[in-house]
């Protein structure tokens, strides 16, 4: 093992932070993939894998990816919800891997909605 010099610690930290950020609860945005039985049947598993692969490729480490149950609009699965901090959640439906690429580069990276795939803005009212 090569001994470290002053300044080397920060390099290790920055490398490791890619993984540890997940535990710091600091994120700019959350992408939720809806994984009810309907979603899984429609291919949400591939959607999830695709999202993770693109984030990895583009070195985006401040976006969290989670899963949740069926969003209730089963005919439009696979669906995801994108929540950028400080903005209302956006639901996208009828997703394919190509559409995911576009949503990540336009919405997550540039901050613009991909209007043609948007199903709904905001979420239902709850008690």
């Amino acid at each position: 093992m090569k001994k470290l010099k002053v300044g080397d610690l920060k390099k290790i930290r920055d490398k490791v932070q890619k993984t540890t950020n997940l535990r710091k609860s600091q994120s700019r945005a959350v992408i939720t993939v809806h994984m009810g039985t309907c979603g899984i049947a429609a291919g949400s598993r591939q959607i999830l894998t695709r999202i993770m692969a693109i984030l990895e490729k583009k070195k985006i480490d401040d976006v969290l990816v989670t899963t949740s149950g069926c969003a209730g609009f089963c005919s439009r699965e696979p669906m995801i919800t994108v929540e950028v901090k400080g903005e209302p959640p956006v639901k996208y439906g009828d997703l394919t891997e190509q559409r995911i690429d576009k949503i990540i580069s336009q919405h997550i990276i540039q901050g613009n909605l991909v209007k043609e795939f948007v199903l709904a803005l905001g979420s239902e009212r709850t008690y």
Partner: peptide, 8 residues
Amino acid sequence: MEHRLHLL
């Protein structure tokens, strides 16, 4: 993205 979930 390396992992989406960490279980501690």
